[in-house]
Design a protein around this nucleic acid. Sequence first.
DNA 1: TTCCTTGCAAAACTTTTGCATTAAA
DNA 2: TTTAATGCAAAAGTTTTGCAAGGAA
Lengths: 139, 139
Amino acid sequence: MNHGPDQTRIQDLLEKQGIQATTQRMLIAELLFARDQHLTAEQIIQTLAERGTDVSKATVYNTLNLFAAKGLVKPLQVDPERGLFDSNMRPHYHFHVEDTGELIDVPPGDLEFARLPPLPPGTESVAVDVVIRVRKQTS
Amino acid sequence: MNHGPDQTRIQDLLEKQGIQATTQRMLIAELLFARDQHLTAEQIIQTLAERGTDVSKATVYNTLNLFAAKGLVKPLQVDPERGLFDSNMRPHYHFHVEDTGELIDVPPGDLEFARLPPLPPGTESVAVDVVIRVRKQTS
DNA sequence: TTCCTTGCAAAACTTTTGCATTAAA
DNA sequence: TTTAATGCAAAAGTTTTGCAAGGAA
């Protein structure tokens, strides 16, 4: 097996989080981190199958949950039908096109808050999620 | 059956949207619109059962989807486990307490944008959803 | 060898659907 | 009496789990 620069970089990424870099985890990570994107578990299963590198459903879910717990991907609850995993961990926001289900990143700096509310007592902030829901313009 | 002021007001609300005010729809609407709140389908089914006014699962889901289509409630995708229906249709945002799953309204005026991004070409805005994810403070 | 990961099938959930029954206009 | 809503059970879809087999340290 030829270990190109991508494989090495991704292997380091996993091991830096204490994640054992198994074959299946590498395949999933290579797919996810090829670029900033939002993927469903099903899309990952299917894409890997098309490449002839099948990974089982259970392992894909296990791996995505592990990556999420280690801060490598961010689970998104945007589409009511299914969960998405975002490979872009930099703070950013989303457009959701209701007609198509498409999810688009808001360009960095294009959204800013003038004021954020005080947090409920005894809590600390984890993240601020913004989804701008849009639809295709009517005529 | 004693039709108090609540029943009459809610019946008007439904009929104003062209919704036939059946017994089951009235029960669900009375529960939802008693106050601003976020309820799961299961909570509605269970609460009505405890009151001795059972409504079937299918009817609860049908009714919630109908109310949502008519703009009486807003479906929320915040909790990964299940969908929520918000009886507060005024524009507002949410805190989500990750440890407990609790959803809290952000007081009106406590959150403002300094800048919103241009929308993707050919789309129009439907809504802007903000969820501030928080967790119970450590130590 | 010992521990961890994988894969399969089945389970667990939430939400939807088909269709016969019942209620509303 | 005609149309629309309800309820049940089953189906559909996503995600999780139990456990035996396989792979990594």
